[in-house]
Design a protein around this nucleic acid. Structure first.
Lengths: 345, 345
DNA sequence: GAATTTTTGATGTACGTAAATCAAAAATGT
DNA sequence: ACATTTTTGATTTACGTACATCAAAAATTC
């Protein structure tokens, strides 16, 4: 049977109240006595029963999640995961509010951060946009003792406590390596379809991709980046124009969320399957395109992992506890047709 | 504030005792009354506080993990993860025992299962070997009401409740797809280095690999499978012989755990970097080889995920609760040099 | 409608910890 | 040695649920 506070009190020869004072760092204990208790804790191997402690404390963690609106499948999936976390909030002692903001709009995001601030939560998770007004709003939150975690897209150089997302430079490098090797000696240039250079994750992916292409596949031409604003209609138009202008196009790296338009353009022009396509985020659309062969590889970040990690980190930061970085790392999933999980998503 | 049993009692107009009878399916409640209570639960959105319930029950879950001994890095990593779970056992109400057995020895494994049986745990997790005496031992456990989960390597056709591991056929297919595409039009045969055909995971990987090579890369010759018994010395000897016999070898799929020997053979013969190598399991050795370019791709299963999943499933089965299959799926990680996590492992 | 059975209520204890109060004891200063 | 401050003990209540007991009320049987 694992030891309880009572056992420690007995072992140390002190009262329950003193053990409590030591455990909860309350004042009024002499150093000698504190030592006795700590030795008892050590020898008995006592570990506080966190669940009982939480029950007794009745502590809860009010959190705010700020997520971009719009029909971006990945972001909708992210929101589903936040709602799943809300469903678990009883067990996790969280009280989660979701704020929805227009995509790629720094001002609206800064205002949402202010709104979050007014609610005085223990922590805020935000899909960031790399802009000064956002950085400033984050700083105000932190100055007020509110923990801030960036989600999916980071805000480096800001006061945020943590970033819950993938290493996007590594993701871009991986995409470059795969496209380069899949194409092998095949001729033809490679294009990049992005969402917006306003968000850090897209910029980072591009940087990693370009670095690998330059360093390891220098012979292959890289076309100028296309920005599709993560909008299906716009992306389709741009990709169609691209295919017309470059009949010898060998590969496309889609680093944003415009996959529906990309796939539509490839399929209507009859180019599907002839061009090596690496895209991001596993959604019902991209999954179908991977199976049909229109997309060759999907790089994915697990939104559920990100949300759960963000919550763990926010709780820890709110309590002033350290975060085990290695445990909170979000991995880059690589899906080929052959290792696609047959479940949902 | 979330509702408690008291709130339900008030809402339903019954006593606390009656609510308790309904919640815990105790007898002595009229159908009408039960309905009243259930409606109150529904309208108030009550969810039982599992932590408080566990505290009150004082329930614990004695579990046994059976893991192969030897210097197999992956298995040692797995054991580390089990020990990490033991460190968490206070919070998770588990009492975990580890049994170590000689690798690839069905008889020893069957005996270990008997030993586990004698301890009368709530559940057993076992790295299985596909042999009749093992299947029989698993059946005896299940007949005695003890939950059984296979870990890493499955035992299909047995009475085990669940398999906590990756889809090894998919892993083999993925390896085949990657090798096939990476080699492109390059000439030369491909070899397979396995550990032992006694374990199901190796057989499945081979099956998936061969299927893809046959169906999509039919022109490429596949050499007969080499069995290295997951032993570094033996594997090195066999691979060195292979390289001597086939100077035009283009690729190697290492589906077992003999990577140390494989890498040593490639590096001493000066072939490192010239042959496309896909291997399994991220270990300090395979990681170094991936970085140096001796290995091109590592397929990995996260031992930590597998252990945690096995524990969740065993607890659920012990309580007769259903398991959400989608949530317990273990993914196949694909690591290139570019998306290698820079942490441990 | 009385006797019996079934259902419900009231109450208390327990799980392991947190937190508070008040009294008692020990240490400290002068 | 005294007053004063600090430290410690003893005790209680609470968190939300589980579980047991006994009495009271209601439903059922004949």
């Amino acid at each position: 049977m694992r030891p309880t506070v009572h056992d420690i009190a007995a072992e140390a020869g002190v009262s329950l109240a003193t053990v409590d004072r030591v455990l909860n760092k309350r004042p009024g204990v002499r150093a000698v006595t504190r030592d006795k208790v700590e030795r008892a804790i050590e020898t008995l191997g006592y570990v506080r029963d966190v669940t009982a402690a939480n029950l007794a404390k009745g502590r809860t963690y009010p959190l705010v999640f700020i997520v971009p609106a719009g029909d971006n499948s990945f972001m909708r999936g992210l929101e589903v995961e936040v709602r799943a976390a809300i469903a678990r909030s009883a067990a996790e002692r969280t009280e989660i509010t979701i704020l929805s903001v227009p995509a790629f709009n720094p001002q609206a995001l800064a205002e949402a951060l202010e709104e979050a601030h007014r609610r005085q939560p223990a922590g805020v998770a935000v899909v960031a946009i790399d802009a000064p007004e956002v950085t400033a709003a984050v700083k105000r939150l932190r100055d007020d003792g509110i923990a801030v975690v960036t989600l999916v897209s980071d805000l480096p150089g800001s006061a945020r406590d943590h970033f819950a997302g993938i290493d996007n430079i590594a993701a871009g490098r991986t995409a470059g390596n795969l496209i380069g090797r899949f194409l092998g000696s095949r001729e033809g240039p490679v294009a990049v379809l992005a969402g917006s250079m306003l968000v850090r994750d897209h910029r980072d992916r591009l940087e990693g991709f370009q670095a690998v292409m330059r360093d390891h596949f220098g012979a292959r031409a890289l076309l100028p980046v296309i920005e599709g604003q993560d909008d299906a209609v716009l992306a389709e138009k741009l990709v169609a124009a691209l295919l017309a202008a470059h009949p010898d196009l060998a590969g496309i790296y889609s680093l944003g969320a415009g996959n529906r338009g990309l796939v539509a353009a490839l399929e209507t022009t009859g180019k599907a399957g002839t061009i090596c396509v690496v895209a991001h985020e596993l959604t019902p659309y991209s999954r179908a395109a991977l199976i049909s062969g229109t997309i060759d590889v999907i790089l994915n970040q697990d939104a559920g992992h990100e949300v759960r990690s963000a919550i763990r980190v926010l709780k820890a930061k709110a309590d002033g506890l350290p975060v085990i970085a290695a445990q909170e790392r979000i991995r880059i999933d690589i899906f080929l047709k052959d290792n696609l999980p047959n479940g949902q998503a």
